[in-house]
C-alpha cells in the first residue's frame, strides 16, 4: 500500500495513467489487431518529442519566462546541414553528427549571448535567433532533399529486440537527463535557480554559467533530434521542426514540470510524449476529421492541466 501511495504522489503518474487509458481506448476499436504496431509507432514518434522536450524542460526549470522558441529552427538547420555534409556516404555519419551538434552549440551560445548582453527576455531572444537560424536553413537547403546515408536510415527506422532504436536513444537521453537533474550538482543548481534566482545567487551558485550551459544543452538536444528526425524521415524538410515548438512545451507541462520553474520531471516527459502521440492516433482511429482532432487535442491539453494543477491548490 505504501508503494501505491508513493506512486500516486509522483506528479508523472497521471500522464502514464492517461497513456494507458488512451492506448486501451484505441486498441478496443481495432479489436487488438494493431497493439504491437501502435505501441512501436508511439515509442518511435514519442522519442523525438522526448529528446526536444527534455531540452525544453531544462530551460523551463530555470524559472518563469525561460523558454526556448528556437527549437524548431535549430532542428531544421541541424538536419539540413548534417544531411548535406554526409551526402549519402556512410563514412560521414560521425562528422555529420558532430556538425549537427556543433550547430546546436552555436545556436545555444548565441541565444544566451543575446539574453545576457541585451538583457532581453528569453522568449524574444530565442525568437529573434530562430528567425536567423531559419533563414540560414532556407539558404543551405534550397529545396534540396538529400537522402540520409543508408546505414543511418536503416538504424533510425529499425528495432532492436522489438524496441525501436529511436526509443532506445531517447531513453538513454532521458536517463542521462535524470541523473544530471537528480544526482549532479548542475541539476541542483538549475532547480535552485528556478526556485529563486536571487537566493541562488546569494548562495554562491554560478547563475550565469548554469543558465548558459542550460540554453546550450537545449539547443544541442534540438539539433540531435533534428539530425535523427531528418534521417528517420528520409531527408530534411524546411518545416520539419514546426510542430515541435508547441509539442516541446506541451510535453514538458503535461509531464508535471512546473511552468513556474524549479520543479522538473523527466519520467513525465516520456509519459506526456506517448500520450500526445496516442491521443492523435486514437482520434484518427475513430475516423474523426482534422478539425475535430485538433479541437479534442486542445481540450485534452487544457483538461490535463486543470486536473493536474488541482493537486497543488492555490496558496492562500
Amino acid at each position: 500500500m505504501t508503494l501505491f501511495h508513493g506512486l500516486m504522489r509522483k506528479p508523472w503518474i497521471w500522464s502514464y495513467l492517461a497513456v494507458a487509458v488512451v492506448w486501451f481506448a484505441t486498441i478496443m476499436v481495432t479489436g487488438g489487431a494493431s497493439a504491437v504496431g501502435l505501441s512501436k509507432a508511439a515509442l518511435t514518434f514519442a522519442a523525438f518529442s522526448v529528446i526536444v522536450g527534455i531540452g525544453q524542460m531544462f530551460v523551463i526549470t530555470l524559472g518563469p519566462g525561460n523558454i526556448d522558441l528556437s527549437v524548431p529552427a535549430t532542428m531544421t538547420l541541424a538536419g539540413t546541414v548534417a544531411l548535406k555534409l554526409m551526402g549519402v556516404d556512410n563514412g560521414m555519419i560521425v562528422p555529420g553528427l558532430l556538425s549537427a551538434l556543433a550547430i546546436g552549440v552555436g545556436v545555444g551560445v548565441c541565444n544566451y549571448g543575446l539574453i545576457k548582453l541585451l538583457r532581453i527576455p528569453p522568449i524574444i531572444a530565442t525568437l529573434a535567433m530562430s528567425f536567423i537560424v531559419q533563414s540560414a536553413a532556407i539558404w543551405t537547403n534550397r529545396g534540396l532533399r538529400i537522402k540520409p546515408p543508408s546505414l543511418l536510415a536503416e538504424f533510425t527506422t529499425s528495432s532492436t529486440l522489438g524496441i525501436p532504436n529511436m526509443a532506445i536513444v531517447a531513453l538513454a537521453v532521458a536517463v542521462i537527463a535524470w541523473v544530471l537533474l537528480e544526482k549532479s550538482l548542475y541539476g541542483r543548481w538549475i532547480t535552485a535557480i528556478g526556485q529563486s534566482m536571487a537566493a541562488a545567487r546569494m548562495a554562491g551558485i554560478p547563475v550565469d554559467g548554469t543558465r548558459f550551459i542550460t540554453y546550450v544543452l537545449c539547443a544541442v538536444l534540438a539539433a540531435l533530434c533534428g539530425y535523427l528526425l531528418a534521417c528517420f524521415s528520409g531527408g530534411a524538410a524546411l518545416n520539419m521542426g514546426a510542430e515541435y515548438l508547441l509539442m516541446s512545451i506541451a510535453v514538458v507541462v503535461i509531464g508535471g514540470t512546473s511552468v513556474a520553474g524549479g520543479d522538473s520531471n523527466v519520467p513525465g516527459v516520456w509519459g506526456a510524449s506517448l500520450f500526445m502521440f496516442l491521443v492523435v492516433s486514437m482520434l484518427n482511429t475513430y475516423g474523426l476529421g482534422a478539425g475535430v482532432r485538433l479541437i479534442m487535442t486542445g481540450l485534452i491539453i487544457i483538461s490535463v492541466i486543470v486536473v493536474a494543477s488541482g493537486r497543488r491548490a492555490r496558496q492562500p
Binding site: G291, I301, I302
Partner: peptide, 26 residues
Amino acid sequence: LRDLPSIVVTLGMSFVWTGLAVLLLP
C-alpha cells in the same frame, strides 16, 4: 481561479481555435 499557467492554457486553446477554423473553412 485555478492559478493555471496561461502559456499552457492558451497553447491548448490554439489547437481548439485552429480546429474550429478548419471545420469552418477546410
